[in-house]
Design a binder for these strands. Structure first.
Lengths: 148, 148
DNA sequence: TGCAAAATCACCCAAAAGGGTGACGACAAC
DNA sequence: GTTGTCGTCACCCTTTTGGGTGATTTTGCA
């Protein structure tokens, strides 16, 4: 996003030069004020549109939607299943955080450990679950009742 | 969407008249070319930004509010939610396959399309869901009742 | 029947994820 | 005390993902 502002400033600088040139070229010597005005109007309109488009990259409208959710048991992780697979508590923790859609970096920050640590944990976790990807690990963990 | 362009043109026409007026009012009699140019530049930049803002469709960001409901139903994907987010059927299909833990390559093979196609589908899907990762997309899709 | 949306694919680049290996301290069990 | 598990971290290398851009074809609907 900072790049855009920079580019905008640069283009602005170039424009000043161009406009200064056109000023003496068309205005002073031929006095064609209409061309000058049109030029400025056109370029700035285009520039404005572009800026506006760039600026609205993150414009979102919040829509609150009520969603029915199955009420009932608050879910308890299957401890015996966890033990059976030889998954350590820490690995379970990582699995839960993976399931919420966090990246390794974010998990590392949340648990105050290094990203490498998270990676070894998840690596061993995937191995124990027989998963090749984190999405698969989540899927398996879900069917195994390790996570809700 | 076309209305905006029309309005833009109309305003442009009005502006030309106004500018013509200011030209004789301020420019010819006082020769303040800088003010004239600045005026045009400013107005058109603002106009352009406004147009750009109008042109970009507002993106909807779902905020799910969970409401407890008697559990038991075999799950039906929330069509209104899908439409509301502007997610296409094909993208839904990809979301479902992602949720099962498949890689892009595997999804591509299953749907008989190229991996690139799957990537663009998932890319747009993540954009619409406001997800940065596939695991997050799955999580969001789940809470939005798009997938079981 | 013509336009807009959807679906398809390619290419490049950067970031994230995953695999493999090795290492070190803490702690419990034996 | 030795052994084993657990949690921690590093480094390297490959694969996977994701972002961005651009283009073409299909198709559904006005």
């Amino acid at each position: 996003m900072k790049r855009h502002v920079l580019i905008y400033g640069l283009i602005g600088g170039v424009l000043i030069v161009v406009l200064k040139w056109t000023e003496y070229r068309f205005l002073v010597f031929e006095h064609s004020i209409e061309i000058y005005g049109g030029l400025i109007a056109g370029t700035f309109a285009v520039l404005g549109i572009w800026l506006g488009l760039k600026l609205t990259g993150t414009r979102e409208r919040i829509v609150v939607k009520e969603v029915p959710v199955p009420a009932g048991e608050p879910f308890v992780p299957d401890e015996s299943m966890r033990e059976g697979l030889g998954i350590t508590p820490r690995e379970m923790e990582i699995l839960g955080l993976i399931a919420t859609g966090l990246s390794n970096r974010e998990i590392a920050d949340r648990l105050f450990v290094s990203e490498n640590t998270v990676k070894t944990h998840s690596s061993r976790l995937f191995d124990k679950l027989g998963a090749k990807r984190r999405t698969q690990a989540v899927q398996i963990g879900k069917t195994a009742r390790l996570i809700p």
